[in-house]
């Protein structure tokens, strides 16, 4: 079976603020996009892994982590893993940067 790869243009790199998450809706996907201090751009599903839910885009960004704005869980922006002592996993999306264009790859 053939798997097609879709790239969706989501933002201009220069317009992405550093350390401030951006909420993006692509079709059915709710995504939180983060530009880090080191220049990388990372994307997570915009949904707190906490059982009570919530968004992640407004969380405090520190290095390669975001703190859940509602329950203060620390979540890796690299692999979506919730850090100790809490547990959980957030879905990550692949990001591609091409010149000034930032894409999410499905």
């Amino acid at each position: 079976m053939n798997k097609t790869v879709t790239r969706v243009l989501v933002a201009k790199y220069d317009e992405l603020p550093v350390r401030v998450g951006q909420a993006i809706k692509i079709g059915e996907h709710e995504i939180a996009l983060f530009r880090l201090s080191n220049g990388d751009v990372r994307a997570l599903e915009n949904k707190s892994p906490h059982p009570k839910g919530g968004v992640l885009s407004e969380g405090l960004v520190s290095g390669e982590y975001v703190f859940c704005p509602l329950y203060d869980w620390k979540i890796s922006l690299i692999d979506g893993k919730v850090q100790e002592p809490d547990q959980g996993q957030v879905k990550t999306y692949q990001v591609e940067i091409d010149g000034d264009h930032v894409y999410i790859v499905f």
Partner: peptide, 13 residues
Amino acid sequence: HRYYTKRSIVVNT
């Protein structure tokens, strides 16, 4: 732009 936007992108995935 920094704090109060939400981008909606309509696509056919």
